[in-house]
Simulated scan of single mutants.
Amino acid sequence: MNEATPPNRCRIVLIAPPGVPAARIVTAFDGGDVASLILPENGMDEASFQAFAERIVPAAQAAGYAGVAGDDDSNAGDTRIAGRVQADGIHVEVSKAELAETIEHSQAKMMVGTGGAKTRDDALELGETRPDYIFFGRFGYDNKPEPHPRNLSLGAWWADMIQIPCIVMAGSDIASVEAVGATGAEFVALSSAVFADGTDPRTAVATANALLDETAPRFED
């Protein structure tokens, strides 16, 4: 997390898309408040993913961000890599039983977050294992300007009912952070809106923070 006192409203989580150069990710770090950076495996083999994470995670941590390694369809290899690169957390999208096992073995050393829920029942099942957060959305599917309505609905319901924090995937338009912030979700995930070709990551993060400052509801202390 950033050394400065974090804002008392929805905060940004960055998700690195496939093929984004390390330098573009680092550029985003100068755009203002960000809670964490998730580095999906994005189809890389284990050695390539570890080398990539070794370049990015220390830079993220130096900037005050939590570095999280993981992917859809994660496996034990991701957990090992997260440990090797001294990441702050691991993101896994697996069955409830596998999630519970990962939490049992890893949560004392790092955050364990999860996603993949498509319904309220799915989310509640995963929530029973007490992950550090639940993610509503799918990596790489933020290809429309607005957030997916299902993710907004699940995020609003979860934020109102459950104490475990949630992250909701925004759309490809930076202004979509407003819709996510309005749900009461603790975090909004940004990927293509920050890292698409022709976008300045630093400016995109700064713009997102300004929009959240203006429109996102404040949380109770």
Score class of each variant (00 low, 15 high):
117 A>V: 11
51 A>N: 07
205 V>D: 02
78 D>N: 09
67 G>L: 04
201 P>V: 07
33 D>V: 12
163 Q>K: 14
194 V>C: 05
76 A>F: 00
216 A>D: 06
96 K>N: 08
161 M>N: 15
32 G>Q: 09
185 A>F: 03
90 I>F: 02
219 F>M: 12
195 F>W: 12
129 T>P: 00
196 A>T: 12
90 I>Q: 01
84 R>D: 12
9 R>C: 11
50 Q>H: 00
199 T>L: 13
219 F>W: 15
73 D>I: 02
188 V>H: 08
105 H>T: 12
23 A>F: 03
191 S>K: 01
11 R>S: 08
100 A>R: 07
29 F>C: 05
55 R>G: 03
120 R>P: 01
14 L>F: 06
217 P>E: 05
198 G>I: 08
8 N>F: 01
94 V>K: 03
46 E>H: 01
64 G>D: 11
4 A>I: 10
185 A>S: 15
177 V>N: 09
175 A>L: 09
140 G>H: 02
55 R>Q: 15
67 G>W: 06
144 K>I: 07
86 Q>I: 02
214 E>V: 04
144 K>C: 07
31 G>H: 06
197 D>W: 01
13 V>L: 13
183 T>Y: 05
180 V>S: 07
38 I>L: 12
164 I>C: 10
65 Y>D: 07
59 A>Q: 15
97 A>R: 13
207 T>P: 05
143 N>P: 00
138 R>K: 08
41 E>C: 02
213 D>P: 01
145 P>H: 09
116 G>Y: 03
140 G>P: 06
55 R>L: 14
87 A>Y: 01
42 N>M: 00
208 A>L: 10
176 S>E: 12
39 L>F: 01
3 E>M: 13
143 N>T: 14
120 R>Y: 04
52 F>A: 02
150 R>D: 15
139 F>R: 00
53 A>R: 04
1 M>G: 15
24 R>I: 03
87 A>S: 02
139 F>Y: 04
21 P>D: 13
142 D>K: 09
123 A>D: 03
29 F>H: 07
189 A>K: 01
99 L>D: 01
209 N>F: 03
195 F>R: 08
115 G>R: 00
44 M>S: 04
180 V>F: 08
128 E>R: 10
46 E>F: 00
2 N>M: 14
194 V>L: 08
41 E>N: 04
67 G>R: 08
45 D>Y: 00
27 T>Q: 15
138 R>G: 04
61 Q>D: 10
65 Y>H: 11
121 D>A: 14
161 M>T: 15
10 C>W: 05
182 A>Y: 10
67 G>T: 11
101 E>K: 09
25 I>K: 05
133 Y>I: 07
182 A>D: 15
170 A>P: 05
92 V>T: 08
31 G>L: 05
131 P>V: 04
176 S>G: 13
51 A>S: 13
46 E>K: 00
117 A>S: 13
13 V>S: 06
104 E>V: 00
158 W>M: 11
8 N>T: 06
215 T>V: 07
121 D>S: 12
11 R>I: 10
90 I>S: 01
3 E>D: 12
81 I>V: 11
95 S>V: 10
78 D>V: 09
83 G>H: 06
55 R>N: 10
220 E>W: 03
137 G>S: 10
26 V>G: 01
40 P>E: 10
67 G>A: 14
16 A>L: 09
141 Y>Q: 14
109 K>A: 14
21 P>W: 06
71 D>T: 14
52 F>Y: 13
5 T>F: 11
82 A>K: 00
39 L>H: 05
213 D>M: 03
